[in-house]
Every structure is written in C-alpha cells, then in structure tokens.
Nucleic acid binder design. Structure first.
Lengths: 339, 339
DNA sequence: TTATTTTTTTGAAACGGTTCATTAAAGAAT
DNA sequence: ATTCTTTAATGAACCGTTTCAAAAAAATAA
C-alpha cells in the first residue's frame, strides 16, 4: 500500500506539499503540482479517507435511517436524500431500523461512533422510546415524516391533515355527500391526521357521521375487508376516501366483485400515489406525497446545521404539502353554466 | 470529546487495558473490567470507529452499488443485502450509480479510498466501460444480476433463460399454441435471455415464428403499445408472454380496452412479480425473482472472500432460479381423466 | 522462601493523513 | 548588492485507536 509518504519521497517533496496538491491548495507551484500528480499516477497511489477523516474530524458521511428500506413508499425519499447529498460531496449510510426501537438505538450509536457528520431519520414509533437518547445526540440531525412528542429537532413532515382535507373537499365539491373513510390503524399519527382532515372537511359541510369511519391496517387486504363491511353497514355510499392507495386498491377489488362501477356508482379517492395507481382501472385519483422533495428539504436543513448556518439551538419545522392527482376514479360534477 | 486516554487516566489503568475491555478481550481481570466500564459510563465516552479502522485496517463497512435506489425491483435486494450483512456486524454504504458509467466509476474510487471491506454491485451496462478499472480493484467484490463480458469476479445472477423457458412451457402445457412475446429492449442481456428461453421452449414444440416477437422497453406504456401492435398484426393469439410485469400490466390494459377477456380469450403471463401483480384483475401469473435471496447469496459469497475462506483467484458464479407464481391470468387446460 | 511459570498490564510505536509554525526561496524596493 | 516582502515548502505534532514486546504481578512448583 503506497502512502502519501511514498509519494513525497519519490516526487522529492514534503508530505505537506503532496497533501496540498491532493486538496487543491493554491499555494503549490505548477512545477511541483505536475511532479506530484505524475508520481501519484505512477505509483497508483489512492488517498485514504479514513486517515483524512481522523485528522480533519470530518467524514463527509451522512446516516439515513429508514424503517424499511424495501418499502416502495420510501424509495423516492432515499433518492431525494442521496442525490442531493451527492451534489455536496457527501456519502450516505443507509440503515434500516426494521421499525424496531432497539435496532434504531443501536444504529444511532454506531453512526455516532463512526463520526458521521449528520443524521436524517424517519424515527420508529414506539411507546418504549427513550426520548433522552435522541436528545443527547449532538450530531446534526433532521427528523423526517414522523413527529415524536418531546423531541425538539429540525423536522420535515408531510401535511397529512391538509392532504386529507383537500381530497375530501374535492369529493364534496363534486357533489358527493355520503363519504366513507377507510382508514389505517388507530393511534398511528399520520392516519389520525388524515382522519382529522377528512373530518374537518365533512363537518364544515355538516356531513360528518361517526358511522362513516372504518379502521384497518394499510394493506390491500384490509382495504378489501373495510369496503365490504361499509357496503354491508351502509346504504347508498357516494364516495370512499381511502387513507392509502393500497387500501384504495383493495376497495376497488371489493367494489368490482360486487359489480359496483367506479366512478359511476361510487367514487373513490386514494392517498399516497404509489407507482401503479395511475395504471389501475380506473386510474386512481389520489393525493401525491412529494417524497423526493421531502428528502431534498431534509438535506438542505441538515447541511445548514452542519455548516453552522442555522442557529445551533433553533429548531425548525417544515410542512410539505401534497398534490391532488386528478384521474378517473372520481365522478365529476356536471358543469353548470349558470354557476 | 472524551477519548480512550481520558478513560484510562480516570480509571487508573493503561489505554491498552481500556482497549481490551472495549474489544471483549478475555485477558482483563473482572475488577479492572468493572472499573473501566463504570468510568466509560460516567464520562459518556463513545468509541471512535474511524480511529479504530485506521489502526485495524478494517472498517466493517460494505459498499452496495445499485443503478437506481428508488426502483421497486431492487428494494428486496437491498433488504437482503443489508439484513444479512447486519447479522455479521457490517454496515452498508448504499450508492446509486443512476445507470451512469462515470458516476459508477467515481463511486468505486470513493469506496476504495474509504477502505470499505467489500463491494456488492449491480454494474451499469455501457459500451464505454473500461473493464480494467474493475479488474484492478482488489477489494473483495461480488457482481449481481448483470454479467459483464471480460470481468471475472464472483457473480450471482438470476436465471432469466430458465424462468422464461418455464413460463412458456407452462403456457404450452396448458394448451396455448400461438404465444406472443412482448419483450424489453434489444441488446439488454436479461431481456435477450428471456427471449432465448421463450424461443427454446417454443422451438421444442415447433411453435416458434419470428413474427411472434415484439420489442419495446420495460414500461407499462410500452406494454400497452406492443399489445395493440400484436393484436393488429396477428389473428387469434392464444397467449402473451410479457418479459416484465410492467409490460404485462400495459398489455392487460390494452386487452381490456379491446374487450378481450383474460384469461378466457387470451392468457397472459408476466415476469418479475412486482408487489401489485397479485392484486390485479385478474391476478397475474408470473415468474418471481427471489431478490432477497439473491442479495443474501451475494453477501455470503462476499463474506467468504473477505474472510479469505474462498480462494483469492477462484471466481464463482451462482445462478438463482425463479419461481412460477400461478394465479389467474392463464387459462388452464381441462383435466382429462384419461391422461 | 525462592525460583519458575503463567497471567495481566503497560505504554510506545504504528496506522495515513492534515495542520501550521517555521524556514527557505523568490521578488521587489532601496 | 543589500534589505525587506511576499510566496512556497517543510516536517514534526497530532487525530484516537490497536498492537505487541516487555515489564509487572500473580500463581504455582521446588
């Protein structure tokens, strides 16, 4: 293994000079620069980032912690984070907590001991969380997508409430009145917020009724079950607000099996915009979550923290709005020329 | 920042002893072990992996290079790699080459200079590839999913030929004769292999005809186009072999628009088993690629290389077989009791 | 008790860079 | 030619660990 010392010796200069060439310092004369570069090439010298990190106390590595790397929901987030960090010369450690608070805790410890320069994390929801653990980490850190009570760090989250409100409002504006919500699990903050958004919009038009609410988990199967149940319990449903596209997909299947036409008999709107939603029959109207942008925003916030541009103690919150993707699963109101 | 020296001083032992405690060396007396552990806790000391790496010449980090981290196809691979490396105490650097050979080259250089212990890579296909560059890397390395001529490294690939052969054979065994192939791009090795598998099976039954082959890219839209084109060009198609589930999805949409019932009028079989295939109407019969296992196998091969268990120069090739997922998009042959 | 063996502990020398006060060289001014 | 400035090059100290030969302590044998 050739080191900087070997290069210095062969090139006939000091190690300091070689280091300066390597780091593009302007103080080196052209003559020496050329000499050093040639020697580097001749020896096949490869700089050692580990040694540099130790000396500089900076690694140019960022840790990204995700509950499940294989989840299609987060792939755009991963992309948004890695691409934007790459631009600034940072590398990414991708870690999967598997939604396990203990695993997450170990990962955090590992990352800190690896001297990463910053952390972007989608934290695990858990009643066993020790809030102090995260508080005590003084590596710059940005939370993403999930708020944790008692943790004051920079955070960027999606506006679940607003998205659900907008989706419901869209249904109501298009003449739907009896709108069922097929929601995800109780006590999950994002799904609670979506329920609240739906409820707010419904109450605004005096449409809210308790029996319109159904709970399940966020799977296709669960969507199927909830849809059947709502069909059994209620008469003449106008529309369905599904708190996740997967739920919507299950509901769509249930409706088809019962020969109920979408959107002619019942309209349906999803939430999340997974890749295949636009290819379903009918294509699914839904709320898109701009995960790439969420990732990018997190990176920007983190870099400010790292570079000390933002106040050390100040803690900011970014709320990213969703976008309504209008496709073909919602029956539109006829346009009335008098209006 | 507290270092191992601070701990040593406060605990009243040498740095060597503290280091031994940290690394679970058995030679330390219980008394000293306790003393050191207490001091570590009291001072809030966090070991520094960077310094340890420099000294040990081992980082316990692995680089994983993927063409596109946000692709749903690779999420299970990522999971297979990260989970199985985690078990052995390794961390993963996830890098996205964006299918760009220059980017890939830069990533490789970076990873090597970070002293990662090994590399798992889905290489970029490119005619501009400098084969020597990869050859010259002496960090242990395993290629995944894509073969590159002229590069002799350990490799684990999916059996595209066999999968396509099995899928086609399944169609033929179920009484389909005129079987169209909706393939991905020409000159893409995996799609070429799938074509070859289909062709081999077709020829075995004297069913092969050149005009049954259609080329596109592997998108839903392209599947839609190819399906329409084949319907225009040919009469009485029995079945469709789609080289990718996305292509199958597009084909499904085209068939529905033309009021052709699947599987009653035409059968269709996909390739890849994306998450939603089983929720389509009809649910899609397809070839599943066990990406998690591919990732796991790659890890196992890599670890053997790292730990020197496998011969340095020997270079192995693992071919992972797919699995036929029988669902509802293929019309089954009536069971004949005489047979 | 003393000599011998075994077990622990010690601490200085790496590991491969960066940094920066100091020195040397080059250029400008007198 | 000499002095003063400016610019470039030097190399030892340092970053926080591990390692390992040597020393010290403890255990065993004589």
């Amino acid at each position: 293994m050739t080191t900087i010392k070997d290069v210095a010796k062969i090139a006939g200069v000091s190690v300091g000079t070689v280091s300066n060439v390597l780091n593009d310092l302007e103080t080196v004369t052209e003559k020496n620069k050329v000499k050093v570069m040639e020697t580097i090439k001749a020896l096949g010298y490869k700089p050692n980032k580990i040694a540099a990190s130790l000396s500089k106390k900076k690694t140019m590595n960022i840790g990204l912690i995700i509950p499940d790397v294989s989840s299609p929901f987060y792939s755009d987030l991963i992309k948004g984070v890695t691409e934007n960090l790459d631009v600034h010369g940072y590398n990414v450690f991708l870690c999967s907590s598997g939604n396990d608070i203990k695993k997450e805790s170990k990962i955090l410890k590992d990352l800190v001991s690896m001297w990463i320069d910053g952390i972007i994390i989608i934290p695990v929801y858990s009643d066993k969380r020790d809030v102090n653990e995260i508080k005590e980490i003084d590596t710059p850190m940005v939370l993403v997508n999930r708020e944790i009570d008692g943790i004051t760090k920079d955070i960027v989250i999606f506006d679940n409430f607003g998205g659900a409100y907008e989706a419901t409002d869209f249904l109501i504006k298009n003449n739907h009145k009896k709108i069922v919500i097929l929601n995800g699990p109780k006590y999950s903050r994002p799904f609670e917020d979506r329920l609240l958004g739906w409820k707010a919009s419904m109450e605004e038009h005096d449409l809210y009724k308790k029996n319109l609410v159904f709970y399940g988990d966020f799977s296709v199967e669960s969507g199927y079950e909830m849809m059947l149940k709502s069909l059994n319990n209620l008469k003449k449903i106008d529309a369905v607000f599904a708190s996740s596209d997967l739920i919507a997909l299950g509901a769509l299947n249930a409706l088809e099996e019962n020969n109920i036409k979408v959107p002619d008999d019942i309209s349906i709107i999803g939430f999340g915009d997974i890749y295949l939603s636009k290819f379903l029959k009918p294509s699914l109207t839904t709320i898109r979550r701009p995960f790439y942008n969420i990732g990018k925003t997190a990176v920007l916030m983190l870099l400010e923290k790292i570079e000390g541009k933002s106040d050390e103690k100040e803690c900011r919150k970014f709320v990213i709005k969703g976008k309504l993707e209008i496709r073909n699963s919602v029956k539109r109101k006829k346009i009335n020329k008098d209006e």
